[in-house]
């Protein structure tokens, strides 16, 4: 098991190198240029003075050949240096390390709520297949899946404010400083995120459970005189969990990518917000740093999911 984990971690290295290359090149391929933008900004701030384009290029290190730039970045990366932001004061790592906790907290909370909503409801639907309970939950799940998150978020922000004069707190405090205040800020956006992703997940849990309930070993369990509840929880659940883990693990990537909307609407200083702003300004080092970090998180989660298989399914042979 430990050897397998080590092997998987080592395998992450080539993947990581590939990711750095793609991230770096993607930024250069997209139209628009950080230099143009910076020249514009400098011109307007200096009251119309002509700015030397080439000087700006040299300043940002963009005058060198593309591959040289890539290797400089890679070299710095190996030394733990993600570079400096083009437009903001501070290094990329300092900005990211300030913003990452908020995003991670939002994603983790959303993920936990998604799991807590989708697994029990999915099981309930499967146990009560084609009854009113099942149908009602399924209809609600379709609504959950199809309503855009920004729309419910708008309603939640506007109506309580109008009716009761209540608005969710909008000032960020770290969880470790003031946990209750922090959770009051994060709970609503996390719940909204969970509602949109739990709709699909609970339908998957339902389908997968029904699939398992048709298996021969479930019929065996019935023939042993075991109660329905125990069959569902003891015999079916672990078998259902094998594909469910893959699904839920995979959803974390989407949650990371989708966090930007909720971060923006609820004023959470997270990496999603940072990424969109930096992309708009073509802040190469910033965008590269953010995407790299998100990729690493996604890779680590995939690794955890793979290792979890062994815990759930004894048939998975790990060597």
């Amino acid at each position: 098991m430990a050897r397998y984990a080590l092997k998987r971690v080592l395998l992450l290295i080539p993947t990581l190198i590939l990711v750095t290359f793609i991230v770096f090149m993607l930024m250069r391929i997209i139209p628009g240029d950080a230099v143009d933008y910076l020249v514009q900004v400098l011109q307007s701030s200096s009251g119309g003075k002509t700015i030397d384009r080439e000087a700006v290029e040299v300043m940002l290190g963009l005058d060198k050949p593309l591959l040289t730039q890539y290797f400089i970045w890679l070299n710095d990366l190996l030394h733990g240096d993600l570079g400096d932001s083009f437009f903001m004061t501070g290094t990329v790592s300092s900005i990211i390390s300030y913003e990452m906790p908020a995003t991670l907290e939002l994603v983790i909370l959303t993920f936990l709520l998604t799991t807590v909503i989708s697994i029990p409801l999915g099981l309930l639907c499967a146990a009560r297949q084609d009854t009113i309970t099942d149908n009602v939950i399924r209809v609600i799940s379709v609504i959950m899946m199809s309503v855009p998150v920004f729309w419910i978020a708008t309603l939640i922000l506007v109506y309580p404010a109008v009716w009761w004069g209540y608005a969710p707190p909008m000032t960020y405090v770290s969880f470790f400083e003031a946990p209750i205040q922090n959770l009051r800020m994060f709970f609503i956006p996390a719940l909204l995120g969970a509602i949109t992703s739990a709709g699909g997940q609970l339908r998957n849990v339902r389908t997968l459970t029904l699939e398992v309930m048709r298996q021969d070993y479930i019929r065996t369990a019935w023939s042993k005189g075991i109660k329905e509840r125990m069959i569902l929880l003891k015999h079916a659940f672990r078998n259902t969990m094998i594909p469910v883990i893959t699904m839920l693990g995979g959803s974390i990537g989407y949650l990371l990518g989708g966090s930007v909307i909720l971060e923006t609407m609820f004023n959470i200083p997270g990496i999603g917000q940072q990424l969109t702003t930096s992309l708009g300004m073509r802040d190469y080092p910033m965008v590269q740093g953010c995407i790299l970090l998100i990729s690493v998180i996604a890779m680590v989660i995939n690794l955890i999911v793979d290792l979890l298989y062994k815990a759930v399914d004894p048939r998975v042979e790990i060597e």
């Binding site: 021969d216 070993y217 065996t220 369990a221 042993k224 005189g225 672990r238």
Partner: peptide
């Protein structure tokens, strides 16, 4: 009926490989 199954009358099936729960 649950009290009869597995206690008074029990059953074995054709394919033992699929009739046993793989994760127990």
């Amino acid at each position: 009926m649950q009290e009869v199954r597995g206690s008074k009358i029990s059953m074995i099936f054709q394919e033992p490989a699929t009739a046993l729960n793989p994760v127990m």
